[in-house]
């Protein structure tokens, strides 16, 4: 089924392009957000990645799974941005994009909302301690539910390298978490 849509999109059919975008824009955005940590950057990166994927669809081998191929494009986009990144300051003072969601009428329980926001912040803080490739591995493993083989395909590594790097990344985050917990205890 998905193959038919991809073939149609390769022929330039707009309905097929729409289907691909609607199916994959969320997971691509989630990947970009985890990699970049900023909602605006993630949106821009996700859109650029989708545009690049659509424009290079003719090079996609239908015998391969589509998701890892798309994620590798998104990952490369994010890694390039991380390498170019300069610190940015939010000018509108609206804070996290979660605030927009709340104002738009999504009304989660405030207590749960605050807890979720705190956990998101903690997780993003831990992710920023990792180099881009390790951040990608963690994101793909925990949130995109890819297998080791698929992660290796996206990251351009061997499976054993993925396992090793993933473990070290988790270890590094655990050390960082312990350090933060101790610092908070002293405050």
């Amino acid at each position: 089924m998905e193959q038919n849509w991809i073939q149609s999109a390769q022929r330039g059919e707009e309905q097929a392009v729409t289907w691909l975008v609607e199916t994959y824009q969320r997971p691509v955005y989630y990947l970009c957000f985890r990699m970049l940590g900023d909602a605006d950057e993630a949106e821009d990166a996700a859109q650029e990645a989708l545009i690049k994927a659509i424009s290079h669809l003719s090079t996609f081998d239908l015998a391969r799974p589509f998701r890892p191929w798309l994620f590798s494009i998104a990952a490369n986009e994010c890694v390039d941005r991380l390498r170019r990144q300069r610190p940015t300051v939010s000018l509108d003072g609206m804070g996290e994009d979660g605030a927009w969601e709340w104002k738009a009428g999504h009304s989660p329980d405030p207590q749960i909302y605050v807890e979720q926001q705190e956990r998101q912040s903690q997780v993003q803080a831990l992710l920023t301690t990792l180099p881009p490739t390790d951040r990608l591995l963690v994101t793909l493993f925990y949130w995109e539910e890819l297998s080791y083989d698929e992660i290796a395909q996206v990251a351009g590594l061997t499976v054993s390298a993925v396992k090793s790097r993933l473990f070290r990344a988790r270890r590094l985050m655990a050390q960082q978490w312990v350090k933060s917990a101790k610092e908070e205890a002293y405050v």
Binding site: V17, T18, V21, E22, Q25, R26, Y29, Y30, F33, R34, A39, D40, A42, E43, A46, Q47, L50, I51, I54, D97, G98, W100, E101, A104, H106, Q120, W143
Partner: peptide, 16 residues
Amino acid sequence: APALPVGFEQRTLVRV
């Protein structure tokens, strides 16, 4: 999963 920005899906479709 992080919350999607409001209007993200629409903007993405238009831009693509």
